[in-house]
Design a protein around this nucleic acid. Structure first.
Lengths: 349, 349
DNA sequence: CGAAAAATTGTTATCGTTAACATTCCTAAC
DNA sequence: GTTAGGAATGTTAACGATAACAATTTTTCG
């Protein structure tokens, strides 16, 4: 038996009032006598009424919902971000819909589109940048939906930006290895040919330069910069394969800076398999400080980025834009990272 | 400069047709002459038109969107599930909105409500069950929105169910420890007073019983069964604290079965801190086989549950219900788990 | 050539809700 | 007893899109 969802006017009819009155009751707005309210509420309960958000939001021209587009949902980085965003949004009475976009620019666009079509009041984007996705995103911004990006390139005067300071994080990580006496330091997770768009790689390069260590391009490895079809995912597997390549070099590196912790963990596996010791033979630094980092053996030295804070700030910036109709100045927040030294670079901390 | 979002009729006006014609063009449906189509498409582009999904879905009475409510988004279990659900849904042309519900029944309800209000075509629920949430959920089901639950209790003739076989998983894990000669086996993650609603705990109890090992309630520890305000979260911290308690017993256990891998990892930390060796002094088994499990030291013996498969099946069941208007038989799928033996129970695999 | 079929466009009504205004009744104040 | 203004409810017209049907023109083909 298919009960159709009751509508306002159906409730109204059974109670003997107009839908406007019922609307007033369910929205707790305007004047309604106690007697009527009671009757209406009873009917609402009995008929299992539920507001039709589509109609309501269409009429009101606002949904009190924000969207979050995540690239890699398996990464603890994304999930912490999501939790913080949700918390901040909820506190202001906004719902959060999360969309996942994996693998392709096309899926980015699908996610943007479905959120925009559902008329969310604003969108936070935390996917890897790619040309087509950016084009589409620009369209969204131009059609006046507030957008904030997290840890991702996107230039637009109306779009706020928040990110960890990947540049100085990468610098510090490398600096740390240099301080320990390493000069042959490998980088896993990106290639120079990709234009060194990756800030972490830039930080690595700057640190080398500052200490007059010559950059050896053979020590920098990663999946080829992908076509827009497949944005560069950084996985454990890439770390494993990259490390294999580095180990097969005539003069192998004595230290590794990995693009992120997963990459680092993959690299550690390869190092172990080669029968080498961490950190004695090869020291390794990751990035992100995912929960797993403390449990690897040895525990992983890494750069901690403030995930919750990024989420919170992103949500605040977005809500700010949603509430202040007219154009605010673009805000750009770059948050400090923190080097966490564990035993993958130095013995017995 | 605030460009208001263009509407169908605005496009129609500039082109000199009716909105119906424009609608036909953007939806690629019905007859439109090439000439008109071209003109319309140009205007669509120039005016940066985007469909208003609220209006469209209101009129069409379907959104081609499904919702997924996750409890603990930080758990790799949830994220794998989400990815599989999304993949399956996307393949059938459905969008996926994910809502997070943490901590409380109230937030469960908020999530259900926001999805139901947005008129999603169906909802997959993967949160921990609690009374109030269930009541609300029942209301949703009664108002004819298809619902499928994953790894969570909820009895309703219209609601399909998919889960890992936690009972036999728990049994196998315990059996494995018994086979290794253990008789004092602790359980961390739930208490008997909670009514042993946890299938994994039941499996543990059954295995003990089958081998005539007496259940020692002091060996079973976990956070008290929480009030509906705070559903029982299983974290690393709980594992750590639970293990501490077990270690302080006069006769400590020689083996541990932990409710999930995070709990197990927390317990391992406590064991290490106590200066005991795994598995020589205490053997430990987890549940889930999260990616981290292979990287702990020693690597964690655990019960792998098919996360992707659960997501895929849940999505398929939901889409089935969405497409077949009328009531299908309730389906219940319980999927096999697999014991993955690593070095936290036996030396040198 | 003429009729049926296909192609093109338009009209109307409606999805469920609510903002804005209108109406009626009641109470209180002078 | 009149009047002002709350209190309670109703009416109307949208929000933006589309299903269903109607109207007109063009094509097809016996």
């Amino acid at each position: 038996m298919k009960k159709k969802q009751a509508t306002l006017s159906e409730i109204a009819e059974t109670v003997g009032v107009t839908s406007m009155t019922v609307s007033r009751v369910v929205n707790k707005s305007g004047y309604v006598s106690d007697e009527t309210r009671t009757k209406v509420l009873r009917a609402v309960k009995e008929m299992n009424y539920r507001q039709n958000g589509l109609a309501r939001n269409l009429r009101r021209q606002r949904t009190e919902t924000i969207g979050l587009v995540l690239g890699d949902i398996s990464n603890p980085y994304s999930t912490e971000l999501a939790r913080a965003v949700r918390e901040t949004a909820l506190a202001k009475g906004f719902n959060l819909f999360i969309c996942i976009s994996e693998q392709s620019a096309k899926e980015d666009i699908t996610a943007f589109e479905s959120l925009a079509n559902h008329s969310v009041d604003g969108i936070i984007v935390a996917t890897r940048a790619n040309a087509e996705g950016n084009d589409y995103l620009r369209g969204i911004v131009d059609s006046n939906i507030p957008v904030v990006v997290v840890g991702r390139d996107f230039q637009h005067e109306m779009v706020d930006f928040v990110s960890a300071d990947n540049l100085s994080g990468g610098f510090e990580a490398t600096q740390h290895l240099i301080d320990l006496g390493h000069t042959r330091i490998g980088f896993i997770g990106a290639t120079l040919s990709g234009g060194a768009s990756l800030k972490r790689l830039q930080g690595y390069l700057q640190a080398l330069e500052q200490h007059d260590i010559e950059v050896d391009e053979r020590l920098i490895t990663g999946r080829k910069q992908a076509i827009s079809e497949v944005p560069g995912y950084s996985t454990e597997k890439m770390g494993y394969e990259g490390m294999k390549r580095l180990l097969s070099l005539p003069k192998r590196p004595t230290a590794i800076f990995a693009r992120n912790d997963f990459t680092a963990i993959g690299a550690m596996t390869a190092i172990n398999e080669a029968g080498l010791k961490i950190p004695e033979d090869i020291a390794i630094v990751g990035f992100d400080d995912i929960p797993m980092a403390v449990h690897t053996s040895p525990p992983l030295t890494t750069v901690r980025q403030p995930m919750r804070l990024q989420g919170q700030i992103a949500a605040e910036m977005l809500l700010q834009r949603i509430e202040n109709e007219e154009g605010l100045e673009r805000i750009e927040r770059v948050l400090n990272c923190e080097l966490i030294i564990r035993n993958s670079t130095v013995l017995s901390s």
